[in-house]
Lab assay of single mutants.
Amino acid sequence: QIFVKTLTGKTITLEVEPSDTIENVKAKIQDKEGIPPDQQRLIFAGKQLEDGRTLSDYNIQKESTLHLVL
């Protein structure tokens, strides 16, 4: 699982696999929060994550925290 922290300070927990794409993660966030993926920007280690890449591409491991910017 990974954590996604929103600007409001809320933390969302997501069940993911390293092979999941960023697009996939955004879809999971939409399921939980109702935020359309095209409004979501995910930041990890100061980098904006691209939809077509996977979590493992960015070396995002379990218990990692991503930041969600709208």
Rank of each mutant, 00 (worst) to 15 (best):
I2M: 05
I2L: 09
I2P: 01
I2G: 01
F3W: 06
F3I: 06
F3D: 03
F3K: 06
V4S: 00
V4G: 00
V4W: 01
V4L: 05
K5D: 04
K5N: 06
K5T: 12
K5R: 13
K5F: 08
K5Q: 11
K5M: 15
T6N: 06
T6C: 11
T6Y: 11
L7E: 15
L7H: 14
L7M: 15
L7V: 15
L7F: 13
T8R: 08
T8I: 08
T8D: 12
T8C: 15
T8L: 10
G9F: 05
K10N: 08
K10T: 08
K10A: 08
T11E: 06
T11W: 07
T11H: 07
I12C: 03
I12P: 00
T13W: 07
T13Q: 08
T13M: 11
T13D: 05
L14M: 04
L14Y: 02
L14K: 00
L14W: 01
L14G: 00
E15G: 06
E15K: 11
E15I: 14
E15N: 12
V16D: 00
V16W: 13
V16E: 00
E17S: 14
E17W: 12
E17D: 13
P18A: 11
P18M: 14
S19H: 14
S19K: 08
D20F: 07
D20P: 00
D20A: 06
D20W: 09
T21H: 04
T21E: 03
T21N: 04
T21Q: 04
I22D: 00
I22H: 01
I22C: 03
E23G: 14
N24W: 10
N24Q: 15
N24A: 14
V25N: 00
V25P: 00
V25L: 11
V25W: 01
V25G: 00
V25K: 00
V25R: 00
K26Y: 03
K26H: 02
K26F: 03
A27M: 15
A27I: 15
A27R: 14
K28Q: 09
K28H: 04
I29C: 02
I29G: 00
Q30N: 09
Q30Y: 15
Q30K: 10
D31I: 12
D31M: 14
D31C: 13
D31V: 12
D31T: 11
K32P: 02
K32F: 07
E33R: 04
E33V: 13
E33H: 07
E33N: 07
E33D: 05
E33I: 11
E33A: 10
E33G: 04
G34R: 06
G34S: 05
G34C: 07
I35H: 08
I35V: 08
I35Q: 03
P36M: 07
P36D: 08
P36N: 07
P36S: 08
P36G: 05
P36R: 09
P36I: 06
P36A: 10
P36F: 06
P37R: 15
D38W: 11
D38A: 12
D38H: 15
D38N: 10
D38R: 09
D38F: 11
Q39L: 12
Q39K: 09
Q39C: 13
Q39R: 10
Q39T: 09
Q40Y: 13
Q40V: 09
Q40I: 11
Q40H: 04
R41E: 12
R41Q: 14
R41F: 11
R41N: 13
R41H: 13
R41L: 13
L42I: 07
L42M: 03
L42K: 00
I43F: 14
I43S: 09
I43K: 05
I43V: 12
F44G: 02
F44V: 03
F44Q: 02
F44N: 02
F44W: 09
A45Q: 15
A45L: 12
A45E: 15
A45G: 14
A45P: 01
A45K: 11
G46N: 07
G46H: 06
G46M: 05
G46W: 05
K47L: 14
K47Y: 10
Q48P: 12
L49G: 01
L49D: 00
L49F: 02
L49R: 00
L49N: 00
L49T: 03
E50I: 07
E50T: 06
E50Q: 09
E50C: 11
E50M: 08
E50W: 05
E50P: 03
D51F: 04
D51Q: 05
D51A: 06
D51H: 06
D51K: 04
D51Y: 05
G52L: 07
G52M: 09
T54H: 06
T54W: 04
T54P: 06
L55T: 02
L55C: 06
L55K: 00
L55Q: 00
L55I: 09
S56R: 12
S56F: 10
S56W: 10
S56H: 11
D57C: 04
D57A: 06
D57L: 03
D57I: 03
Y58P: 00
Y58F: 04
Y58N: 02
N59W: 04
N59P: 03
N59A: 08
N59Y: 07
N59L: 07
N59I: 04
N59R: 07
I60V: 08
Q61E: 11
Q61W: 08
Q61N: 10
K62H: 13
K62T: 11
K62Y: 11
E63F: 15
E63Y: 15
E63M: 13
E63G: 14
E63P: 03
E63A: 12
S64C: 10
S64L: 04
S64W: 05
S64P: 03
S64F: 09
S64Y: 08
T65C: 08
T65H: 12
T65N: 04
L66M: 05
L66P: 02
L66R: 01
L66W: 02
L66H: 02
H67W: 09
H67R: 08
H67F: 12
H67L: 12
L68Q: 02
L68V: 05
L68S: 01
L68A: 02
L68G: 01
L68E: 01
V69M: 11
V69C: 12
V69K: 08
L70F: 10
L70A: 10
L70E: 08
